[in-house]
Simulated assay, not measured.
Amino acid sequence: MEWLPVGIVIALAMGFNYTNGFHDAANAIATSVSTRALTPRVALAMAAVANLAGGLIVYKFGAVAATVGKGIIDAPQGTQGLVICAAALIGAIGWNLLTWWYGLPSSSSHALIGGLGGAALAAGATVKWQGIFEKVIIPMLASPVVGFVLGYLVMTTILWAFRRAQPGRVQRGFRYAQTASAAAMAFGHGFQDAAKTAGVVVLALSVGGYHSGDHVPLWVLLMAAIVISLGTYAGGWRIMRTLGRRIIHLDPPQGFAAESTAAAILYVAGMAFGAPISTTHTITSAIMGVGATKRLSAVRWGVAGNIIGAWIFTFPGAGLVAVISYFLINLFV
């Protein structure tokens, strides 16, 4: 039964992965559903398939998984390392469920990293602050700015390019184009977020003595990709309403611009830098940038402020739950 603690941690990782899927399903499809480019169930099915494909591509481009598995904390070998992993995952799951309940599109990625940091600090383990700063904090600050500016520029380009076109035809064309942009966004979500869960599973296998090296086993990626796609298909309707309608009412060209912008940022960050950036931050800021081309007052900045507040509290919130979980688990270990 020596494998049982590792099995429990892997089960928790898949539980987090599932909540990640339904929590962040809105990231990929909210704009397509709100513009009526796709029906909700068709959009969710498409996003689930694209998430699965994105998760599997990590086998070739595994830098994000390596960052989460090796670049955030140094977990000790044995039981204590597994307790740290379990507490971190409970912290991330708890934060995901709380923000989902209130319909706030917070970052599952940062909840996981906050959970790892909190659990490691509670255990007295090493937290790799330089790695967190370079691979997490800088991308966390940069990606919303890039998303806003790039979304603004892409939408401005679209408005200029189609300024003399017949509006009805433009709307119909971009409604079709949104199918591709939503799929690209979902693929990027799978590429980024399935990799993060796979990284935690590899960390648990390593501290449990069942794995060595930096490579991610194929079975881990398959499991992570399948579970996140199932979670995506379950949907996250509360958050979908926030992203699709409450920030700004989008039309098909705006939806296409936001999704294309966010997908491009996810690919570049993951493939070029191995940075585990937040799909939530990226698509939300892109939506704001796209909306700002209409007029700044078109963006409901009060709603945006609530979302940013959830972003700020994600690290400490998930970390605090992880700390409490760590001490509670140790009562029974």
Rank of each mutant, 00 (worst) to 15 (best):
T279C: 00
A304Q: 00
S325L: 01
G302H: 14
T314S: 15
S278D: 13
V299H: 09
R295E: 15
S297W: 15
A322L: 02
W311L: 01
A292N: 12
I307D: 02
P316Q: 03
A318Q: 09
A310K: 11
L296R: 15
W301G: 10
T280V: 11
W311I: 06
F315M: 10
V299A: 00
G291M: 15
A304H: 01
I308G: 06
T293W: 11
T314A: 13
G309F: 01
T280H: 04
K294D: 10
I312A: 14
F315S: 07
P316L: 05
A322E: 11
S325C: 08
V321R: 00
V323T: 05
G305W: 14
W301A: 07
F313G: 13
V323P: 08
G319T: 07
A298T: 14
G305S: 15
I312T: 13
P316S: 10
W311Q: 03
A298L: 01
A304D: 08
G309I: 05
T293G: 09
N306W: 11
F315T: 10
G319E: 03
W301I: 09
G289Y: 10
I307H: 07
G309S: 07
V303Y: 10
A275T: 04
H281A: 10
T293V: 15
T293C: 12
A292Q: 08
T314V: 13
W301F: 14
A304F: 12
